[in-house]
């Protein structure tokens, strides 16, 4: 071993080496390597700041815009509003029936979520718990359908929903689904079904067979066992699938705007309502901002509620495998 090697070894054994001539970055990197916890903390702060800037700051700025009176919109600052006018949050309901738009979107999202959870539960049960031929082919085709761009379905669906269908006459005034909530939640439920099927399939497949057998012996049908035992025990999965579906449908614009004429009584959705604050000569940015904030509330409430419902680890310990 040469003298140089020995000197290097001696340097490696020393933990702090203040006399070593290193650049600032190099010294910093050395410190991070010897103390990885600091590196993790630094990464955490970077990620947090990035999240705050990209996600929460626009939301904050939305609030600033909403609070700025209409005539001072040009002077809205980056961190402070250009005045104080909380009246915008009332005005959005008086200028337009914005509550109706929100109600439309909310109802459509709720119905779509219920449909998706029900159908995806049945499909998830079959794919997750039964063995049958062509299972993988079927599963794959469900997956592939979800890859299609929604626009691919739009033209045929729009033609179909604009047609007068005689058997629907007792239900709809003119026998056409255009301008009804059906025209929105039917295609949206179908589009967002595959994702929920996959989520629920994974959860349902993990419930031990013994529990289902026990339920069936005790007096349920297979379907009864699904809804009384398997679904409650998969609560986290059901909540996840439900929240995802609700949020996607609630925020959906493409189908919802094209399947109605945009009037609130035609079941136009919330996004359509926000855009309605754009007049012929003037864009009411402060009202649009206020409306956007109000529109976020149902989703925010839902997520908070669902989070409390998500109780995991229920199955732990009750079944010995």
């Amino acid at each position: 071993m040469s003298e140089k090697d020995q000197a290097d070894l001696a340097a490696m054994e020393k933990t702090d080496e203040p006399d070593l001539d290193r650049g600032m970055v190099e010294a910093w990197a050395a410190k991070m390597i010897s103390n990885p916890d600091r590196a993790y903390r630094a990464t955490f702060y970077v990620a947090t700041i990035f999240f705050l800037v990209t996600t929460l700051f626009p939301f904050y700025w939305l609030l600033m815009v909403a609070l700025t009176p209409r005539n001072r919109l040009s002077s809205v600052g980056v961190l402070t509003p250009g005045g104080f006018n909380p009246g915008a949050f009332v005005e959005i309901f008086t200028t337009l029936p914005f509550h109706r738009y929100i109600f439309n979107s909310f109802l459509i999202a709720v119905v779509a979520t219920v449909i998706v959870l029900f159908v995806a539960s049945l499909a998830g049960y079959v794919f997750g718990r039964l063995r049958f031929r062509a299972k993988n082919v079927l599963l794959l085709s469900v997956l592939v359908t979800s890859f299609f761009p929604p626009a691919a379905f739009f033209v045929p669906l729009n033609r179909l929903f604009n047609r007068n269908i005689d058997i629907l006459r007792p239900l709809m005034q003119d026998g056409s689904l255009y301008n009804t909530p059906y025209a929105i939640f039917i295609p949206l439920s179908a589009l967002y079904l595959p994702l929920s099927i996959f989520i629920l399939m994974t959860f349902y497949s993990q419930i031990p067979d013994g529990l289902e057998d026990a339920a069936r012996v005790e007096g349920t049908t297979r379907l009864g066992a699904l809804f009384r035992i398997i679904v409650p025990l998969s609560a986290p999965g059901v909540a996840t699938a439900g929240v995802l579906t609700f949020i996607t449908v609630y925020n959906e614009y493409f189908f919802s705007s094209l399947m109605t004429d945009g009037r609130p009584q035609s079941w136009a959705p919330m996004l359509e309502g926000i855009l309605r604050f754009q007049g012929e000569f003037e864009v009411l940015f402060n009202l649009m901002a206020a409306a956007s904030i109000v529109a976020v509330l149902p989703v925010a409430i839902l997520v908070i509620v669902a989070q409390e419902k998500i109780v995991s680890g229920l199955t732990a310990g009750a079944v010995k495998e």
Binding site: P208, D213, R216, L233
Partner: peptide
């Protein structure tokens, strides 16, 4: 199974955990 007038005790006990 539910109409057969039987009941069953399972190896993995299979109590409903919830």
């Amino acid at each position: 199974p539910k109409d057969r007038g039987i009941s069953m005790v399972f190896q993995n006990i299979a109590l409903f955990p919830h």
